[in-house]
Amino acid sequence: MENVVELKGVTKNFKGFSVENMNLEVKQGYITGFIGENGAGKSTTLKMIMNLLRPDAGEVNIFGMDYKQHEKEIKQRIGFVYDSNVFFEGLNVKDIKRIVAPAYKQWDDALFYRYVEQFELPLNKAIKTFSKGMQMKVSLAIALSHHAEFIIMDEPTAGLDPIFRRELLHLLQEIMEDGQRTIFFSTHITTDLDRIADYIALIQKGNLLFNHSIHEIEENYTLVKGSLDLLDRDTEQAFVHVHRTSTGFEALAKNVQNVEHTFGNDVVMERASLEDIMYYFKGGMQHA
């Protein structure tokens, strides 16, 4: 399987925060969701993928090419949507298009106007008067109108109302239909991903904890509930983190079979949501 993005041993140090030795692959033809709490390093990683930020060490390869030699070729094939408006606020959609379009060899004006119509974007109003959702739609229309193969999005659903969030997710699935595209998007709203993501990468404090297909996650991670007397030093090994209350415990296990083997029918097992997984991984880190 081909990878659109390959990060190898990527390290970036800031004061008080660093991304350490990250290895990340984004598979071609799929939607990968990039999750992690605020400040976990999602934006830093995305910026390194976009070459807005250069890593201190390690390799960044996009479409199998590096930025040193192929910056323009790579960016011709990327569509980007950021969490805040990066377009010239005082301009209208038409002028923004006039500035951005000539940058792309494959710009498709007809396609652009189709999206403008679909998203109901006013062409002659300054975009600073647009709502957050509308500004996002402008970014999206631009990102989709040059036949980009790789769409990268930083928190695209943050600040959007639930109805538009759904519309967006539906639209993303639509643009995935031809099988040529790859989407990588960061979010901390995990319910967006539960259904449409194929792969989930979880980052925490600058470390990539995993990058699994949603099946691997579904098959491996499980939420376990049971009474406190089942816990001891050995049985606790099965869990990422255990949350104790006076009425019992709740824990996240990494290996379903292990739990079945150890506890049998004495515990209740439930499907772990991405939110559960994020929460327990965080708890686990604090205790480690």
Partner: peptide, 19 residues
Amino acid sequence: PSIRKLAKELQVSVITTKR
């Protein structure tokens, strides 16, 4: 229907219909 089409219709991920 193709894997991707079905995924879109059901609003599930492509990897799910593929599987």
